[in-house]
């Protein structure tokens, strides 16, 4: 096992280095798309925590991205620093997530999905109708990009590094979380709620916690989304974003740490690659997603997982065969 770890770490370093170095000579479009990928990955990681680790379907992750985006847009265009907006967004999304989840989970497992569905449309209506706060359908434009330790990040490349850096920090935090006792409790919940309960895990509290933390990650993604596009209006945070994020998690492989990275790549980059087909690109994208899910309902990483476990069984049966042969040939 330890021997297999080194190539993995080496691969990880290569990927990170590539994400830092390769985009240096990208054009503005490439950097924008890549930044979008980083932001969406953060949001999808949050949903993966809720769905993949705690087994709860949330249809409001897009709304939490919206809350984060509006927090950033409103606060930074009033001269407050982005980091303050980040704090507000995290707290706000966490608390709202908790309040939403509490009654829903009190009743029944899958009712969280229904409540979040309603919430995401309600959030859209509030974004659109409360002009005094959100400037309504006109949206908030000219959102400034932050200065990090005195460095302006107005240009595409520095801001890409802000997004990538945030993704790095969030990844580390999530990595730590799912290896902590909390994370193990989340998984216990998903795998067998009754057993988890009998083991003395307060299932409702942990489920709620997973949902609230996942929502807060949506808020973080939102605080990056606002300065990335530099314009926020209600339309992008409609239910469709929540559904898109759900799709990212499932397509990448829900419950796998790297699932959201791949899922967001499919959702953000695949349509871009298909654009050469003009009017057909979204259709082809839909067909590709359906095809992938039929082939592997557990997502891309599910394929990999299946492949690895098949190889392991093969290796194991080979070993067994060898052992058997040895036994048989033994006098």
């Amino acid at each position: 096992m330890t021997a297999a770890k080194y190539p993995k770490i080496g691969f990880g370093i290569v990927v990170i280095a590539a994400l830092i170095i390769v985009p240096m000579n990208f054009n503005r479009y490439g950097l924008f798309i890549l930044s979008q990928w980083a932001v969406m990955t953060i949001a999808a990681m949050g949903l993966n925590l809720t769905l993949g680790y705690a087994g709860q379907v949330s249809l409001a992750q897009g709304a939490f991205v919206g809350i984060g985006a509006y927090a950033a847009a409103i606060m930074t265009s009033n001269g407050l620093p982005l980091i303050a907006a980040l704090g507000v967004a995290i707290v706000l999304c966490f608390v709202i997530g908790w309040i939403l989840g509490y009654p829903a989970l009190r009743v029944q497992h899958h009712y969280l999905a229904f409540v979040t569905l309603a919430f995401s449309t309600l959030a859209f209506l509030v974004f659109r109708n409360e002009d005094w706060l959100t400037k309504g359908i006109y949206g908030i434009s000219n959102i400034p990009r932050p200065e990090i330790f005195g460095y302006p990040t107005r240009r595409p490349l520095p801001f890409y590094y802000v997004c990538l850096g945030s993704l790095g920090i969030v990844s580390l935090a999530v990595w730590w979380l799912i290896r902590s006792p909390w994370g193990r409790a989340f998984i216990a919940l998903r795998e067998n709620p009754v057993r988890a309960l009998s083991l003395g895990i307060d299932t409702r509290r942990y489920t709620l916690m997973a949902f609230a933390i996942g929502s807060a990650l949506g808020g973080i993604a939102g605080t990056l989304y606002a300065p990335l596009t530099q314009y926020v209006d209600p339309v992008p945070f409609h239910l469709s974003l929540s559904l898109d994020l759900l799709m990212m998690v499932i397509v990448g492989g829900s419950g796998f740490f790297f699932g959201p990275f791949l899922g967001a790549m499919i959702a953000v980059l695949l349509p871009e690659w298909l654009r050469f087909t003009q009017g057909y690109y979204l259709m082809l994208y839909a067909i590709a997603v359906i095809g992938l899910l039929i082939y592997s309902p557990t997502g891309i990483l599910g394929i990999l997982d299946r492949f690895i476990s098949e190889r392991r069984t093969k290796a194991a049966s080979a070993l067994r065969a060898v052992a058997k042969a040895k036994l048989e040939t033994a006098p």
């Binding site: 503005r28 479009y29 434009s141 990335l228 596009t229 992008p236 871009e272």
Partner: peptide, 30 residues
């Protein structure tokens, strides 16, 4: 608007003579 921004960026990177669109005012603002 977010996608509009990406596409306009892409279009501008190719240095067109004139840029056409978008139609939605929000996307124009971005």
């Amino acid at each position: 608007p977010g996608v509009a921004r990406a596409q306009v960026q892409k279009a501008l990177d190719a240095e067109p003579y004139v840029l056409l669109g978008p139609g939605y005012s929000g996307s124009v603002k971005v």
